[in-house]
Design a protein around this nucleic acid. Structure first.
Length: 585
RNA sequence: GGGCGAGUAGCUCAGUGGAUUAGAGCAUUUGGCUACGAACCAAAAGGUCAGGGGUUCAAAUCCCUUCUCGCUCACCA
């Protein structure tokens, strides 16, 4: 189905050519939804922008466009307003026809891209031997949502978990374990993740305080990167234990990821450095092998290097990211690579991308995008730190969300004197709790800092997941009460939309395609949240004003279809955010 | 000091260059259930869109500048 916006654009473009000649064939018709319903549904601002080049009065231009427009089956006759806006109001029977078109379609009329392209989404990426904390929540949830949206649009998406399973922290950990718990280096599951985390902290303290230990730790990294047998064995044990723990969280959140950690690229690191050398990009500075960047300076105004090999001979994350980039371009054949990490890494990625382009690793045809997100702040507005101080563990956070949702539900059941099984209560609590956490994060513009607040996150009122879930449950209630199978509704007779609330709702349902396409390019999932919230509001308003089951035909069937399409749109939209719906709650 | 980002209602945040009233939600005040489940709806109140310039027919939005606050600036990732 061609979206309303595209149809209008085409029509106005044709009218422009008809009225003013083919030189305007490429002029953007500047169609946008109106921001006030009293001006109709869509407006074109093109007449104003053409006033100067055409040296004509914008209202006269608008009139010429209208005279050449052919939109009879779509809109009432367009009107000129103010200095020269053209306003379009969609006909209700046209809207009814569009609803009919999407009604039998599982995808609700949203097309898939042709041909498909390979897209890599790199997200989550926790560090081995550390617990997943609230900071990983954003990357995991946002990355998953982006992957789902692109998958739905038909892209061949590879979801990569670039796990921090390599690097200095392992030198530190192994060196410390050798010192303190040698048995843990040889026996599986001698330590649980909780121990690992406290070990990490102790090792970090030793690392920071003891220069000799620091040297030993650095040597361990080099040994590991060189493939020393006993170091590798210890490393594998550490990774396995962490992996099990991560999986618990991924299962709970229903996140699917392919693990390809930093260690995967280890065999390619030396080649990357020599490749840079061959291209004449490499310089030695203070003992380290660097590529100096354009447009980046340090405190003293000197050019900033991207270090690809450290003084001790070890490689670092810049080297790994270059190797990963090359692999993803050459072996995976990615056309678009999306990195979902916090905005603090913006400089790093800008540097890596610049060097990769210079070195010919990254061709023009491949789009790389850093999708940054803001910090996780405490309720006090200060940063929640990862290494010092107490951080909120992700698992604990999710459990508490579910627990709170359960308490809330039980209170409600008591008030309403409803009886439900424990299975029902647990299931609803789990869906509501997890949805609330995901939605609270996704509904904000990801680029702003995220103020982490249990009470707000778990509030069941307002622009929250429970509000949307409830809007989904209401049509299901109608279906049960009226003994109606939505999938068996009449698909032939005309849909009639008489009440204002019905029209408003119907038009909103038809906006889904535009919203999804927008998110596909901006990678801002909060647009979908806003859309679904507004949809839910509009449905609730219609529900309040229009009787459905008791209405006479043809209103009754039309309204049932509206209710069904609302529910299916919410279900689809939420599924793109990784959120499940409930039939009852 | 450089780079990047942010400053919109008491609070949390949307906001796609347009039309005498800049939008939500929360909180506050006030109405609406013998029910298609009120986890809802309706109404009120709340703003010199940080300040100052500029471009434009039109600026919260683009440009410049000042102030404030974050993040970041070589061997952690």
């Amino acid at each position: 189905m061609t979206s309303i916006l595209e149809q209008l654009k085409d029509s106005v473009s044709q009218a422009l050519v008809a009225a003013f000649g083919t030189e305007l064939a490429d002029t953007d018709p500047l169609i946008a939804p109106t921001n006030n319903p009293k001006f109709g549904d869509y407006q074109s601002n093109v007449a104003l922008s053409l006033a100067k080049p055409l040296k004509q009065n914008p209202r006269a231009i608008a009139q010429s466009i209208i005279d050449n427009l052919q939109l009879e089956d779509m809109c009432d006759s367009p009107t000129i307003a103010g200095p020269g806006f053209i306003n379009f109001t969609l006909k209700s029977n046209y809207i009814g026809r569009l609803l009919r078109e999407i009604q039998p379609d599982e995808r609700l009329g949203i097309p898939q891209v042709q041909p498909t392209e390979k897209v890599i989404v790199d997200f989550s990426s926790p560090n081995i031997a550390k617990e997943m904390h609230v900071g990983h929540l954003r990357s995991t949830i946002i990355g998953d949502a982006i992957a789902r949206i692109l998958e739905f649009r038909g892209y061949d998406v590879l979801r990569l978990n670039h796990v921090g399973d390599w690097g200095t922290q392992f030198g530190m950990l192994i060196a410390y374990l050798r010192e303190a718990y040698p048995e843990a280096l040889t026996t599986a599951n001698a330590l649980d993740i909780g121990d690992l985390v406290s070990l990490y902290k102790k090792a970090k303290v030793r690392f920071d305080e003891d220069e000799k230990f620091k040297q030993t730790a650095r040597q361990e990294v080099v040994n590991l990167q060189a493939g020393a047998e006993d170091s590798l064995h210890a490393w594998k044990l550490l990774c396995d234990q962490s992996r099990q723990e991560f999986q618990v969280v991924y299962d709970l959140l229903n996140i699917k990821l392919e693990e390809r950690g930093e260690s995967f690229y280890n065999p390619f690191l030396a080649d990357i450095v020599s490749e840079l050398e061959q291209k004449g990009l490499l310089e030695e500075s203070e003992g380290a092998q660097c590529v100096f960047l354009e447009g980046f300076t340090n405190k003293d105004g000197d050019p900033l290097p991207l270090i690809v090999q450290k003084t001790d001979g070890g490689f670092n994350y810049a080297t790994t990211d270059l190797a990963a980039l090359k692999y993803r371009v050459k072996e995976d054949g990615a056309a678009r690579i999306i990195y979902v990490t916090d905005s603090g890494q913006a400089n790093h990625f800008a540097g890596v991308f610049q060097v990769a382009k210079k070195a010919g690793i990254l061709p023009e045809s491949v789009e790389v995008v850093h999708v940054p997100f803001g910090l996780v702040l405490g309720k006090d507005g200060k940063r929640i730190k990862t290494r010092s101080g107490e951080t909120v563990k992700l698992k604990d956070l999710l459990d508490e969300a579910i627990e709170r949702a359960k308490n809330d539900l039980e209170t409600r059941l008591k008030e309403e004197e409803r009886q439900e099984t424990p299975e029902f209560i647990n299931h609803v609590a789990q869906v509501v709790g997890l949805s609330a956490v995901k939605y609270a994060d996704l509904s904000q513009n990801r680029t702003s800092d995220y103020k982490f607040d249990f009470d707000k996150m778990l509030d069941l009122k307002g622009n929250t997941a429970p509000y949307l879930l409830y809007a989904y449950v209401r049509p299901q209630g109608i279906s049960r009460k009226g003994n109606i199978d939505f999938s068996q509704l009449d698909t032939d007779t005309q849909i009639v939309l008489t009440e204002e609330a019905e029209l408003v709702l119907a038009k909103h349902i038809l906006q889904l395609e535009e919203v999804i396409k927008e998110v596909e390019s901006t990678l801002l999932p909060n647009r979908i949240c806003l859309y679904l919230f507004e949809l839910s509001q509009k449905f609730n308003q219609m529900y309040e004003q229009c009787e459905i089951l008791k209405a006479d035909e043809p209103q009754r069937t039309s309204r049932l279809i509206l209710a069904d399409l609302t529910a299916r749109t919410i279900k689809l939209g939420l599924s793109l955010l990784g959120i499940n719906v409930l039939e009852r709650m």
